[in-house]
Amino acid sequence: MPSLKDLKNRIASVKATQKITKAMKMVAAAKLRRAQEAAEAARPYSQRMSAVLANIAQAVGQDDSAPRLMTGTGKDQVHLLVVCTAERGLCGGFNSQIARLARDHTRKLLASGKTVKIVCVGKKGFDILRREFASLIIDRVDLREVKRIGFTNADQVGRKVIGLFEQGEFDVCTLFYSEFKSVISQIPTALQLIPASAPAAVAETTGATAIYDYEPDAGAILGDLIPRNISVQIFRALLENVAGEMGAKMSAMDNATRNAGEMINKLTLNYNRQRQAQITKELIEIISGAEAL
C-alpha cells in the first residue's frame, strides 16, 4: 500500500501530464486547421493536372512515343516503395498503420520472389521498417527541419524517384501515405506512381475530347508533364499526411487527457480513503489508550 505522500506525488505528476497532453491537443488542433487549408489549396492543381493528363494521354494513346515513366519498363521485378510517415510520434496508430501496410506489401512481394527497395520519407516509418527490412532501405528523406511543407520538398523526393528510375533501379514504384478522411479517420493508402495508372477512363466518360493543338508536340508535353505529376502526387500525399498526423495526434491527445482525468479521480479517491483510514486508526489508538487507564 503506497503511503499518503506517494499518492500525493503521483496525483501531482498525473496532473502535470494531463496539462501537457491538453496543450498538445490544442496545438494539434491549430496545426490541423492549417494543414487542412493547405491540403485544400493544393487540390485544384492536382485535379486540373489529372484532367489534363487524361486528355493528353488519350491523344498520345498507346504510341511508342509515350514516355517510359508512363508505360513502365515492361517488367515488374524490382519494386520501389516510397513510404511517407510523420516525423514525430505521439499520434496514436498513425505511423504504425502506414508502416504495417507497407510491411504487408513488402512481405507479399518478397514471398513472390520480387526485389524490394524502400525509400522512407519521415523518421517514424524509417524507425519501424528498419527493424525488419534494414537491408532493403536504400534512402531516407528527412523533413524534420521543414516547418511547412512546400512543393519544393515534394519535388526533391520526386526527382529522386525519377532519377532512380532513369538509372534502371526499379520497375514499379508505389507510394504509401495516409489519406485524410476526417479528424478521426485516416486511411493508409498505397498508390502506384510508376507506371502511371492511366487516367484515360475518366476522359472517355467526360467525352470532352476537343482536337487540341500541341506546342511543341504531345509527346514532349507528356514527357514534361509526367515527372511533374509524380511530384504533385507526392506533394498531395505529404499534405494529406500532415493533416492526418495532426488529426490523429489530436484524438490521441484527447484520449490521453481523458485517461489522465480518470486516473486523477481514482487516485484522489484512494488518497482520501487512506487519509480517512489513518485518522480512524489514530482515534482508535487514543480511545483504547484512554480506556486502558
Binding site: V52, N55, I56, A210, I211, Y212, D213, Y214, E215, P216, A218, A220, I221, D224
Partner: peptide
C-alpha cells in the same frame, strides 16, 4: 510565355496545350 514564344490568349481561342 509559351515555350515556342509568347502568345496572347483571348476568348474563342483554338484548343491548345503548351508548355
Amino acid at each position: 510565355p509559351a515555350t515556342e514564344g509568347e502568345m496572347t490568349v483571348m476568348a474563342h481561342h483554338a484548343p491548345t496545350m503548351t508548355t
